[in-house]
Amino acid sequence: MRAALRRPAGLSALGAVALLAGAVIVLAHLLTGRSSIPSAEVVAALLGRASEPAYTVVVLDHRLPRVLVGLAAGALLAVAGVLVQAVVRNPLAEPSTTGVGAGAALAVVATLVLAPDLGQGGAYVASLVGALATGAVLWAVGRRSFAVTGVLLGAVLAAVTSLLLVVDSAPLGTVLRWLVGSLNARTPTDWALLWPWLALLPVAWALASRLNAWSLGEAAAVGLGLRPGPLLAVVLLVAVACAAAAVAAAGAVAFVGLVAPHIGRLLVGADHRVLVPVAAALGALLLSLADLVAFSVSVQVPGLATDVSGVPVGAVTALIGAPVLVSLVRREQRA
């Protein structure tokens, strides 16, 4: 199967399937929700011709941003995963290996504890700054053994976060979104803050041929003329920025950054020129699909108050992602 998918025709077919799946998922997102809107009205709302203003608000200000943020954050997480895995040449690395998610969570908690008045906007900026600062610390402290350093950094930051929450548990509800990852209650502002970061995806893709050479090991890569220092700096910067943007928009969603590259490798192989875009598409589909599940679960839970805003998508990705990963790793070993 993989040999066939590596050929251009196979890749076009794969792209067509991905587009179709994406269209179905987007449609499902737009059509489902707590308030039931006739499908004709959803289409009308998209075209700006809904019969009721409330429909337009629900579709354009709630459902559309939610699915768009899910797609974009999923793609960014997956690409961050590919890049981090490429740097350490370990397919079990993922965006959280950099500690970036933990840094974002700590920054958000600290902001909410110290300055609760800053609200959502402040939390967004804090998570972004926290994530990027963690990346900078990682580079300064442990660029040579960065997987170990990143994991340790993440553990320390998470411990500090827990400590802060023990001292002041008021922000726990808000911060859960960053700790677990959630796409509930996304607004057009969230989308507006996230989409410019999608420019990182072509940048990551442009690194693909260098990543292919790097994947042969440092000695072979130097032999081919790569300079490890500058390459790793750029790749890590792009990876951290991708992860930071995704985490700021959707929180530290687990497993998408790990599973999407894995499935990608299973489908098209290890060639980063193909893997980067394929993993991006898979990450987008996986996160928005998981969000659909998260949303459906929350609607179907009986006996709960109507104001339940839904299961966080991060819980779904972790619950589904862990067994999927185990089966993928076992399949990889058999292949």
């Binding site: 994947s215 042969l216 090991g217 000695a219 072979a220 032999g223 003329g225 192989g269």
Partner: peptide, 19 residues
């Protein structure tokens, strides 16, 4: 430029998964 003049076969080459 060096890599166009001089090729290296190291002992420590890594097999990329699935390549």
């Amino acid at each position: 430029e060096v890599a166009r003049r001089l090729g290296v076969l190291p002992q420590t080459a890594v097999v990329p998964a699935g390549a």
